[in-house]
Write a protein that binds this DNA or RNA. Structure first.
Length: 266
DNA sequence: ACGAGCGCCTGTCGGC
DNA sequence: TGCCGACAGGCGCTCG
């Protein structure tokens, strides 16, 4: 499910509910949810710690605790719910953290791809991530230089979290369409001017996604309405809003890929 | 270094 | 109605 705008929305909604909460108990309902440490160590260490902040890095939810840091990656089908203790857990809940205020956090994860880390050194997990695309430090010239450093298809490169952190399948298709770039364009062939347009496009689609509270397709992620503003994703055979040509769907890097064959020439 | 293929999972949808 | 494959907001691994 979630890409940068969805994770940002989730984090902003969770903040008020989580800051200052002390974790009093933990139920691990699907063992492989834990990337590290082992379940026994996790329970022993996490209980008693309080949440001091709620942040995001790329697609990771970052919860600094009293001693360690809790990292949550939602992958394809994850969500975080806060419920009253009087409400029962749900079918797809994989990890539950009980707080000191009659509420609990449920990590819901239908497809079981999501992962949780409890670590004193979060940089071990986050350190390899590329730059935050919405940070001031992420400059158009930097993107151009990085593109020159690879000879890769632009779409899989943008999806590579070591290159840029936070782009997923929807926002990548949208950004490439906005920038008039074919998804198979080799990164080193992108000119400085095109790189600048791509930089603007990436930031524009991410910012608009956040402003619309993310993209809600099916019912995995609720509450956003950016799905009503998508230009190419999910619009196979529908007319391009720029030129009227039917949007094409192909596969690039094993991912469904939507683009306008007229606006986005290879 | 790059790209393809596959595994990890559950659920939904379309075709027959 | 039922079965069966394709597909889904992600990512890590192997192989050539």
């Amino acid at each position: 499910m979630p890409e940068l705008p969805e994770v940002e929305t989730i984090v902003n909604r969770l903040r008020a509910d989580l800051i200052g909460r002390k974790i009093e108990a933990a139920d691990l309902l699907w063992e492989r949810t834990l990337a590290s440490p082992k379940p026994a160590h996790f329970k022993k260490n996490v209980i008693g710690q309080s949440i001091s902040a709620v942040k995001r890095r790329g697609k990771y939810i970052v919860l600094p605790l009293s001693l360690d840091t809790l990292l949550i990656h939602l992958r394809m089908s994850g969500d975080i719910l806060i419920r009253r203790e009087s409400e029962p857990i749900h079918k797809h809940d994989r990890l539950v953290l009980h707080f000191d205020n009659e509420h609990y956090l449920a990590f819901s994860n239908m497809r079981k791809f999501g992962r949780v880390w409890l670590t004193p050194t979060p940089e071990d997990v986050l350190g390899k991530l590329g730059p935050e695309p919405l940070d001031d430090a992420f400059r158009a010239e930097m993107l151009y230089e990085k593109l020159q450093g690879h000879k890769r298809q632009i779409k899989p490169l943008l999806l590579d979290q070591h290159f840029i952190a936070g782009m997923g399948n929807i926002y990548t298709d949208e950004a490439l369409h906005l920038a008039d770039l074919h998804p198979l364009t080799k990164s080193d062939l992108i000119k400085e001017k095109q790189a600048q347009i791509l930089w603007k496009s990436i930031r524009k689609v991410l910012r608009e996604g956040i402003a619309r509270n993310g993209t809600s397709i099916d019912w995995i992620y609720r509450g956003g309405d950016f799905q009503n503003y998508l230009q190419v994703y999910g619009r196979k055979n529908k007319p391009c809003f720029k030129c009227g040509s039917p949007i094409k769907k192909t596969t690039v890097g094993q991912r469904g890929t939507h683009f306008c064959p007229q606006c986005q020439k290879e």
